[in-house]
Amino acid sequence: MLRELDVQLGQTVLEIGTGTGWNAALLSHRLGDHRVTTVEVDASLAARARTRIGSAGYCPRVICADGAEGWLPRAPYDRLMATCSVNHVPQMWVPQIEPGGVILTPWESPWLCYGLLRLEVDADASARGRFSPHSAFMLMRGQRTSLRIFRDVVKDDHQPAESSTRLSPWTVTGDDWDLQFAIGLRLHDVWRTWHDNPDVDGVEKRLWLATTDGSSWAAVDYDGKHEDRFTVWQYGARKLWDEVESAHQWWKENDRPEVARFGYTVTSEEQFAWLDKPSNRLGT
């Protein structure tokens, strides 16, 4: 990540997520203590990191605070590096970075934790940039959800609609990270989980889908015999499996884009993902 950050001598850096203090110490070694600020939301982790960094001979400013807010007292910075994933860019980050500066953060959608986003900040306090692959970090605490299928989503009185599909649930949840990343960007509020042996007659394995607000859900059933047709159940205002099929078809029609073809834009009014160029915005 530090190589992607492209930090230069004389620049200032804000790190979000101190952790062990390893990155903060490396940055202090390169830039000097006074040019590095690191923010950790957990007070005990911040204290331990401060001790570890000090034992290595460095003393950057270690702040215990919510990293989603940045750290305004020492702004502006030339670089911001997060060592936690986000599923949207905190609105307070961009205005704290100098024009021409860089924000580097791991990415996570509810569908898949994968990708690294590098944004360059413009003079109007907007930012845009592209994704690269091969990064996975724990999601920022303030952006986490703790939904459970049977506790929070599926209710006894729900009456789902039944249909079938020829799209294998393993196709959209398997080893093709480019496809999964694309689905995650398009279905930005949909999460998934597998259910083995769900205690349903004729069902060996089930893929659950749900929106992060729990208002819509879907289930795709594998009977243990047929791999060319699967039973689908959908409930709520949105037909989530239909959306997955649409995203999969869109991905194929756009030449199966790799992660690096996707980008992201943040302004004071909105933020959105795009393919190839900002005018080609993603939608569901």
Rank of each mutant, 00 (worst) to 15 (best):
G57S: 02
G32I: 11
R52M: 08
A56D: 14
G70M: 02
T18H: 13
C84F: 03
G100K: 00
T18V: 15
C59M: 14
T37M: 12
A24V: 14
T38W: 01
D33S: 12
H29G: 07
A56S: 14
D78I: 09
Q96S: 08
L26W: 10
I16Y: 12
A65G: 06
I97L: 02
T20Y: 07
G54L: 14
G57Y: 09
E98R: 07
M81E: 09
M81A: 11
T51F: 03
C59G: 04
V36W: 07
A75G: 14
L45P: 00
L45S: 10
A82C: 07
T18N: 02
S85A: 14
V41D: 05
E15V: 10
L14G: 13
E98L: 11
A24T: 15
L26P: 07
L45N: 10
C84W: 01
T83I: 00
P76I: 03
G101Q: 01
M81F: 11
E40L: 00
R74T: 06
L26C: 03
L80H: 10
D66V: 01
S44C: 04
G100M: 12
M81Y: 02
L104Q: 06
G54V: 06
G17S: 13
V36Q: 08
W93D: 05
T83D: 00
M92N: 15
L104G: 12
T18W: 07
M92C: 12
W71C: 04
A56Q: 08
A68D: 02
D66Q: 04
M81K: 07
W107G: 12
D66L: 03
V94R: 13
V41R: 01
A65N: 14
L104C: 03
T12N: 15
H34Y: 08
C59A: 15
N87P: 11
G54E: 15
G19C: 03
V41Q: 08
V86I: 13
R30F: 03
Q11W: 12
G54C: 11
W71Y: 06
V41S: 11
T20F: 15
V62S: 04
S85W: 08
G57I: 04
A47S: 14
D33C: 05
L26F: 10
R35V: 07
R61F: 00
P106D: 13
N23S: 14
G19T: 15
L31P: 09
Q11M: 08
T105W: 09
A68S: 14
C64G: 08
V13N: 11
G70D: 10
I97K: 00
T38I: 01
C59I: 04
Q96V: 03
P106A: 04
P73Y: 00
L104P: 04
I97S: 12
V62R: 08
V41T: 04
P90S: 11
P95W: 00
R79Q: 07
E98G: 05
I97P: 10
V86P: 00
Q96D: 07
E15W: 00
A65D: 05
T51Y: 01
C84N: 13
T105M: 13
I63F: 10
L72G: 15
A68N: 06
W93C: 12
E69W: 05
V89A: 08
N87E: 07
G70N: 02
L14K: 10
G21V: 13
V36T: 06
P73A: 07
S55M: 08
V13L: 03
T105E: 08
A47Q: 14
A46F: 01
V62Y: 02
R35A: 11
H34D: 10
E15S: 02
R61P: 00
P99H: 08
T20E: 09
